[in-house]
Design a protein around this nucleic acid. Sequence first.
DNA 1: AACTTGTGCTAACACACGTTAGCTTCTTAT
DNA 2: ATAAGAAGCTAACGTGTGTTAGCACAAGTT
Lengths: 197, 197
Amino acid sequence: MARIKTDKNISRKEVIVSKAAILFREKGFKAASMRDLAELVGVEAASLYNHIKSKTDLLHELCFSVANRFTHKIDEIESDPASSIGKVEKLLRFHINEMISHYEEVYVCDREWKHLADPYLSNFQNQRRIYRKRFAAIIETGIRNKEIKKIDAPTAVLIMLHAISGIESWHRSVQKISAEELEENMVTILVGGLINK
Amino acid sequence: MARIKTDKNISRKEVIVSKAAILFREKGFKAASMRDLAELVGVEAASLYNHIKSKTDLLHELCFSVANRFTHKIDEIESDPASSIGKVEKLLRFHINEMISHYEEVYVCDREWKHLADPYLSNFQNQRRIYRKRFAAIIETGIRNKEIKKIDAPTAVLIMLHAISGIESWHRSVQKISAEELEENMVTILVGGLINK
DNA sequence: AACTTGTGCTAACACACGTTAGCTTCTTAT
DNA sequence: ATAAGAAGCTAACGTGTGTTAGCACAAGTT
């Protein structure tokens, strides 16, 4: 009889959720089976249900924990006395670091949210839409300030957010530059592409 | 008895493949069932097999037709007497236009290739790796020429390619800027982020 | 020590999936 | 008109899926 190993302060459910992130990232939500997950956790599939409600629930858990982190960060940044370009850079660096250090969860949230079920799906889409609007608003302020080139702000947001998800390829590459170098390169190119002049 | 409608010069198989692109884009490869596809085509699921070999085969078809278009384009651009930055811009514009006008196929190729089966999977990964190296090589030449900032070329490639896949969000947004504006904005930001001063 | 709760197991269900077999019907060429 | 091939249908297969029921053992509490 195999027990799920837990360190102090980490519930068995949390262990399952984080293993699920790894599995969903690797295979995709639909292609990952509960039996796969059970094997990864070291237990029989049915045993998982002592800790979780359903497979979809795992996805909820992952998606909203990530989404909430970003929402809190943009709250913080909006009330930060920095220039617009400074705010953009801060947000960008936050995204990059999240993608580097919480790779699996962020990636799964990014790519697999489509498989959420209503009402979570609508909630998620809403939260996402609002986040992007707030991000775009920061850029628009920068454009009015002449800090930022005259560009379409939603397009700029879309470029940034998707460019960041490219860190997935960095994670899987064999010859990696360091995380710090990666961050600096991304900021140089992306912020460099926005700055007026 | 419902027949698959075909215009001149479009085989029934091609109709199925292009409907598959739409479906796979919307639901993801694994979540899309052959019965879904059949309904979209206007026929019973079993009837599809008079025209195609398997579900996976549809994915092969899609992925390689897209990948080959990009391979041919980079062949063409490499032997083009343009500056490095000019080459990058041309390739970037090609990607953007492909993503705009062959949305479903390009998107599916981008996101669902993981579900290819060997040996196609290895072939695809190989082709992709080589393509990215060639793209990076163009950028590296530009860096040596001082046309392009001193950055990590593979990172620049990764940013560009992923930024482009953000056009997905543009497609699904209600208030769209025009395709031309989108292209110009993306080029401004991305090429602008590379140019040395 | 006794009891309660938590955690695991095996077995099984109901269902959805990709695909095949076998037959019918429509289209086309002789 | 008829034969041949293309394209459709229904029925069914085997398999893998998420999940539940029912039971056994372990841990924690009184």
